[in-house]
Computed example of a mutant assay.
Amino acid sequence: MESKLSRNEAISQLVLASSSPRRKELVASLDLSLPVYILSTDTDESIEAHWSPEQVVEQLSLRKANAALDLLQQKQAVETSLIIGADTIVVLDGDVLGKPVDDDEAKAMLRRLQGRAHEVYTGIACVLSSSGEAQLAHRMTKVKMKPLSEEQIARYVATGEPRDKAGSYGIQGLGSTLVDEIEGCYFNVVGLPLSLLSDMLATYDIAVF
């Protein structure tokens, strides 16, 4: 890994490569001295069958960050930006559960998750706009969901909350009532592990406090 000094190229802004309002709120909560811009990207989320969960979240987060880098270059942005990409998945029995394609798939996911423990992985990619240099990392949190009846699952899915959530639930919303316990970083389950992100930002001499 390069030293802090060689990485610190007068970064003038952070760019969050995400359309997630949850990630936007979490980055804003750090109250960083740099301006933070949101740049939504449409990226290919296909994965290789042999990838581990760690590879899935790190590679997809890098794909998002690089897509944002391409957009910045098209706009001929001259500021040195640090681009942050993130991706979250739920893993049960080795199967990756992403966002449901419809309410029926959301119900099917919740049937599998109810009464059992699963893992939530979030990957973070930090990419310097000036060089394209990338730093990748991830966190894993174990989550145990309480047993749910078919009626509870149907009512929760009817709220619409599961539609854009990996694993078909949002722990920061009504989904909090489905969870019995977690082991690890709560914000990792929300979609952006702040402790990990702050450590990564520190390597660019960006201090949270």
Rank of each mutant, 00 (worst) to 15 (best):
N8I: 08
M145E: 06
H118K: 04
I171L: 06
V208C: 10
Q152S: 07
E54F: 05
Y121E: 06
E2T: 11
A108D: 09
L148D: 05
L196V: 08
I38M: 13
A49Y: 07
L5C: 12
D93F: 03
V36L: 09
L174Y: 14
I89M: 07
G94R: 07
G184K: 14
L136F: 05
G115F: 08
G175P: 03
G85F: 01
V96C: 07
L128Y: 00
V208F: 07
C126T: 14
L136S: 07
N66V: 01
I153Q: 11
L128P: 00
H118C: 04
L69S: 01
Q55C: 02
S18C: 10
K142L: 09
S176Y: 08
K99N: 03
A77Y: 00
A68P: 01
L148N: 08
L197A: 09
P193T: 10
T88N: 12
G115Y: 04
A125P: 00
Y169G: 13
D180N: 15
V78W: 01
L32V: 10
L26P: 08
V179Y: 11
I171D: 06
S40A: 15
D164M: 10
A158C: 05
A166H: 02
R139T: 14
L5V: 13
G175L: 05
D87F: 04
G175T: 02
T203F: 02
P193H: 10
S198W: 02
A49K: 15
S6I: 04
G160C: 11
P147D: 10
R23G: 03
I206F: 07
Y169E: 12
D70N: 00
A28G: 06
N66F: 01
L26R: 03
Q114N: 14
